[in-house]
Design a protein around this nucleic acid. Structure first.
Lengths: 188, 188
DNA sequence: GGATAAGTGGGGTGGCACCCCATTTTGGTC
DNA sequence: GACCAAAATGGGGTGCCACCCCACTTATCC
């Protein structure tokens, strides 16, 4: 578990790659070209692959700060007097993020499935899951949510909708509309 | 609008490509290699690209018979005495298909967004949409469904969930579970 | 059976992910 | 400031892919 300090140039390249990746992912989504990112960052493609051994690893890093924001928002909402509404607010916030930031949804979904349990807690999905746990248990205690619903279910739902509406003219509005529909059910 | 009859060898190649594509998509999902499909079909890649100008066109063709099955199922269910239950049954059937046939969900979703209105009615999405319209309107009249829900909304929901659970150990069960959750809402 | 239009596929282009290894850069040490 | 071992780099290689061009083959109709 010893973390040797990285060399200065390594850290500099790491940051450059991350900055370029942020731009590229915002423009092209999660399947942006890694070569292009390396080119924009002014590094060789081998360097990119050394710093981020997989596409998923790079995406996780790109979305880390956004995810932190969502987590801190969850902690604030945990104090809300209406736990049911707080949960819905938070899920809509995730939907808004994911719909705006093309690729975040795919990243969250895949990291949920392709990693084993030990790694999961340090990934985007794991962080968001942990943050939502308290919001959900409060909402459940308040009787606003069925007891058989898990945080994972809700996140899958939000991410699925963001992913599905990625090509819609107004992904954000569409995600939000369908999310509310799914949370309330289709009955009158 | 004159359709010249195709040459016999052209039709033969068309069918071979389709058969190979069915196998490949079942194994690798919607992003199967087109070159590989051409190779298995015993034709040059140019021939594949001439018969199916885009990946989506090929996928649409691959899924056509499955989609026809779903459409006829919708027509049968339209006679069901409980329109609400019939609609749910049909949506679950779509979920089961889409979860089993990797790539169908993505195909349906994309064809919904990337084509203009004139083309849409001949695509998989268009066919399924049309078939669901009567089921939905009956369910609505029976008061089982909110009036602001469209067939497109429901299909997007099902497809989104199939797509999101594609990497799950048991995609079919997971899709079904989440679909029922979304249809009923998260409240108790 | 021969004209002709339809159809074919080998091979080219350009792009991609990912990897190897000779070379450069860094940070600590004297 | 010079030196050296370890860390880091990136040019270039491999093998894959989608997609396209055009000289050639083949079916069809008379």
């Amino acid at each position: 578990m010893l973390e040797r300090p990285k060399r200065a140039d390594a850290r500099r390249n790491h940051d450059r790659i991350l900055a370029a990746a942020q731009v590229a992912v915002a423009r092209d989504g999660a399947d942006a070209s890694l070569e292009e990112i390396a080119r924009q960052a002014g590094v060789g493609s081998a360097t990119l692959h050394r710093h981020f051994p997989s596409r998923l690893a790079l995406l996780e890093a790109v979305f880390l700060d956004r995810v932190e924001t969502l987590c801190s928002q969850a902690r604030e909402l945990a104090a809300d007097p209406d736990p049911g509404a707080a949960l819905v607010t938070w899920l809509r916030a995730i939907g808004a993020y994911a719909a705006n930031v093309r690729g975040l949804a795919a990243s969250l979904l895949r990291s949920a499935c392709e990693l084993d349990h030990a790694e999961r807690s340090v990934t985007c999905h794991g962080k968001v899951s942990d943050a939502g746990e308290e919001l959900l248990s409060r909402a459940r205690q308040a009787g606003a949510v069925r007891p058989d619903v898990s945080v994972g279910d809700l996140l899958t739902l939000v991410n699925a909708l963001s992913l599905a509406t990625e090509r819609h003219p107004d992904p954000c509005a569409e995600t939000d509309r369908l999310l509310l529909l799914a949370l309330e059910g289709i009955g009158p």
